[in-house]
Simulated assay, not measured.
Amino acid sequence: MQINGSIALVTGANRGLGRHFAQQLVERGAAKVYATARNPEQIGIPGVEKLRLDITDPGSVEQAAAAASDVTFLINNAGISTFTNLLGGDLGPIRSELDTHFWGTLSMVRAFAPVLGANGGGGILNVLSALSWFSYDGANSYGVAKAAQWSLTNGIRLELAGQGTLVSGLHLGAADTDMMTHYDGEKMDPADVVRIALDGIEAGRIEIIADEWSAYVKASLANDPSAFYTPAGR
């Protein structure tokens, strides 16, 4: 999968990782970059084509797929974090996270898979999380949604292999974006995350680990989970 000359579409391109994805795609020589958002007027990136898109609205997704029928590289970046727990939290935010990360991503893939196939296969990058692999009290709904999105990524990889579509997942801990404003821990520069992700795509990697924390969490899955969830393990 070569970025140079590709035609890419980025969801949630108005801020955070999505804005950096769109910028770096342009810098790496993508022939066209569709930068999408619910409010595309908020996108201020030179050299992109703005497109209105709400991934939780099937009609909006269908319109985007029709308008961007030349896409060869789809980046499913749009996301939300409501910091909601499963037992005491309102069900509305929990549903919203699943609607965005699981159902929204699935809707995008179902709409754009035929587009990618018609254009030679191309690639899909789903922005996942280290929280695909562990739970965190205070953000359990996000962990559930990201775990579902991770499983979705693995499933569609198998289903799209026959048309030659590379399906990759990006895992990271915290990046210094608007979504993580209230997080006090160490945060990666989002530009570095995106650079690592795009390098991984060009190397043909199906799983891209952006930081040491995500690598540590993944490695812990082979061990007794009680070791991870003790204070010493955290």
Rank of each mutant, 00 (worst) to 15 (best):
G29L: 11
I201Q: 01
E27L: 05
G200W: 02
S129E: 00
Y216G: 11
P46A: 14
Q23P: 00
S107H: 15
D199S: 09
V193M: 02
A147M: 04
M108I: 06
V127Q: 05
W213L: 13
M188W: 10
G104K: 13
V109F: 09
T72K: 07
D184V: 15
K187H: 14
E207K: 08
I80A: 04
A148G: 14
A147H: 00
A222C: 07
S96D: 15
G88Y: 06
A130Y: 02
R19F: 00
A175H: 02
S129D: 02
H20D: 09
K50S: 06
I7F: 01
L51Y: 02
I45L: 10
K32D: 06
A66C: 01
E49A: 13
D189T: 03
V127T: 10
Q42D: 13
N140H: 02
E49R: 06
S6P: 03
N39F: 13
I45M: 12
G12F: 09
A67S: 05
F102W: 14
L221P: 09
E159H: 00
G123L: 11
F228M: 15
G121D: 10
P231T: 03
G122C: 00
L172W: 09
G204V: 14
L172E: 09
Q149K: 02
V33Q: 08
G120L: 07
D70K: 02
S132Y: 01
A35E: 00
V71C: 11
L86P: 02
T36Y: 14
A210W: 09
A174E: 06
T181V: 15
G89T: 09
L91A: 08
N154I: 03
G123V: 07
L98S: 04
P225Q: 03
K50V: 07
D184L: 13
A68E: 04
L158M: 14
T11H: 02
I156M: 15
W103F: 15
S81P: 03
D184P: 11
L160N: 10
S168V: 12
S107F: 14
G173F: 04
M1T: 12
Y183K: 10
A130W: 01
L221E: 09
I43V: 04
L106P: 02
H20F: 08
H20V: 05
Y34E: 08
H101G: 11
S60Q: 11
L98Q: 02
A66N: 05
I208T: 12
A68S: 05
G44Y: 00
G16Y: 05
I209A: 04
F112R: 11
L106K: 11
P190T: 07
V48D: 01
N76R: 06
D199L: 03
E49H: 05
S107Q: 14
P225L: 04
E202A: 14
G162P: 01
T230R: 09
M1W: 01
A174Q: 07
R19L: 06
G89I: 07
L166H: 05
F21Y: 15
L106V: 10
Q24E: 01
S6N: 06
E62G: 12
R15Q: 04
R195M: 09
Q23C: 01
V194C: 03
